[in-house]
């Protein structure tokens, strides 16, 4: 039996696939990510200002307060099934801000609750967000070591 019945090769087929696969529309995608992402950052600024002016926090604590508030808001919107719709519309506009990090932790915890409290909720919290922490902390430690040994 001829092993290759379809007389074509992977290079040609890959080219053909690219020709026939529609690309995502660039303009509307970028615009949606831009305005939603911008709005989330503006909201963060507003919460931070509330922290400074009304709660007498210093700038760094106010920034943390803004992060915690946005994370809480995201967790709630994820729970009631709204955040994935925002994500579908805005893409990177909602996952690049801290809201995306929060959604990446809440959504698997919610989804895998049926698999139990330890291996379901406990472990799955970090399936998507884990790598972000691993490489973020890893990079900061490398920077810290270089800073301590050569710069400081």
């Amino acid at each position: 039996m001829d092993k290759q019945r379809i007389h074509t090769n992977p290079q040609h087929y890959s080219w053909l696939t690219d020709q026939l696969s529609p690309p995502s529309p660039l303009g509307s995608g970028l615009f949606q990510a831009f305005w939603v992402g911008g709005l989330i950052c503006m909201l963060g600024q507003a919460i931070s200002d509330i922290g400074v002016h009304l709660l007498d926090l210093n700038a760094r604590d106010a920034s943390t307060f803004a992060s915690i508030s946005l994370i809480f808001l995201t967790a709630l919107l994820t729970g009631i099934g709204v955040f994935d719709k925002i994500g579908k519309y805005a893409g990177a506009g909602s996952f690049v801000p801290i809201t995306g990090f929060a959604n990446a932790m809440v959504s698997p915890a919610l989804e895998f609750r049926r698999e139990g409290l330890v291996l379901g909720v406990g472990a799955k919290l970090f399936t998507i967000a884990g790598p972000v922490l691993v490489y973020g902390v890893g990079a900061s430690v490398i920077y810290g070591l270089i800073y301590a040994l050569f710069i400081h």
Partner: peptide, 12 residues
């Protein structure tokens, strides 16, 4: 992904 994860699906 989990159902509530906010990601976009490509047209393909």
């Amino acid at each position: 992904y989990p159902l509530e994860f906010g990601a976009q699906r490509p047209p393909t």
